[in-house]
Design a protein around this nucleic acid. Structure first.
Lengths: 174, 174
DNA sequence: TGAAAAGTAAAACGAACGTTTTACATTGAT
DNA sequence: ATCAATGTAAAACGTTCGTTTTACTTTTCA
């Protein structure tokens, strides 16, 4: 397996499960299975590595949201939670952990959240046949809420959000 | 001002704005305006201090949710965000930062989230005149979503959640 | 008045942090 | 065959971490 891939995968796993600040480079070196010299050649720095993890995660996550209906957005989130587990949004978490004071990280988060918002607006527009920014904002809140409530309420939170969204969509369609 | 109050207030401010792990005790000592000896006499340890911050925040936050309608829950959250700003849920954040591996913190978070869930179920029951656990789950998701979406979408996210909740409640009342 | 309690300032603790360096081994393409 | 690239293992860099200790100075109140 490619060195860079192994590194990014190990970093995502550790940062997500144990926290960015709480994960030391020694632990990362051990899990990635490479020397610190090689790690730093590929990573640059810890913050740059976190930024690459976020950009990679943005690709994977946004790919799942290439759907045509609002309901499919929630189905996609259900899949994501089943596969990846529910530990909250890694983007918001890593920005909060660093107080927004690490530019590479803050930038990666801003880019992802802007794309996330845009995508929801698009899906709502396709589903409804017209733009509806207010409904899109509600759907965004439900997705964000499902992601975070699932941490302590489990997958039930996602299906609750899905049902709520269905009601809002139905109401907007007539 | 009481030493303990000053300490807890400074800790909450720093942990919330810059992150728990990212905040060093030296910085805390400087902002709280006391010697490290005094700090440790009152705090015990950094983790215990965070736990006390969370318990104190639970008191303040839950006091605001002593209301009789679902709409008032969102009004309370709007107030909270206006006063305290929107940096996500400190409970979920601090648990995530420590990977759930710091018992004092994990316990404080579990207690708060259980109380939060219970309170929403109560308010929904009062508002509706009957229990409705599924609607309560949706309201919880909307509150959690508003809290986290407000980080990057601003107060607009809270009013969107409020409007969505109004629709769900109206539908459940008939 | 005087002993206990509670505070300060500052040095020190060992451990862990992110990162770099030194010295060497393996590989791959010309 | 060899030069350049890429890897390892491990020590070392200086800094910062959370916490404790030492040596004094208030404050409190019976």
């Amino acid at each position: 397996m490619e060195m860079s891939t192994r590194l990014t995968a190990a970093a995502e796993r550790l940062f997500d499960r144990h926290g960015y600040m709480a994960t030391g480079m020694d632990r990362l070196i051990a899990v990635a299975g490479m020397s610190s010299r090689t790690l730093y050649k590929h990573a640059g720095s810890k913050a740059q590595l976190m930024a690459r993890v976020l950009n990679e995660r943005d690709r994977r996550f946004m790919a799942r949201l290439e759907v045509q209906s609002v309901d499919a957005l929630f189905a996609a989130l259900e899949d994501w939670v089943r596969v990846e587990g529910a530990r909250g949004c890694l983007f918001l978490r890593s920005r909060a952990e660093t107080g927004g004071e690490t530019p590479e990280i803050a930038e990666a988060v801003a880019i992802h959240k802007a794309a996330f918002h845009r995508r929801i607006e698009e899906v709502v527009a396709v589903n409804l046949g017209r733009e509806d920014p207010e409904l899109a904002e509600q759907v965004l809140v439900l997705l964000e809420g499902a992601t975070h409530a699932a941490v302590y309420r489990g997958a039930e939170a996602v299906s609750a959000a899905r049902a709520a969204a269905a009601i809002l969509i139905e109401r907007a369609q007539t």
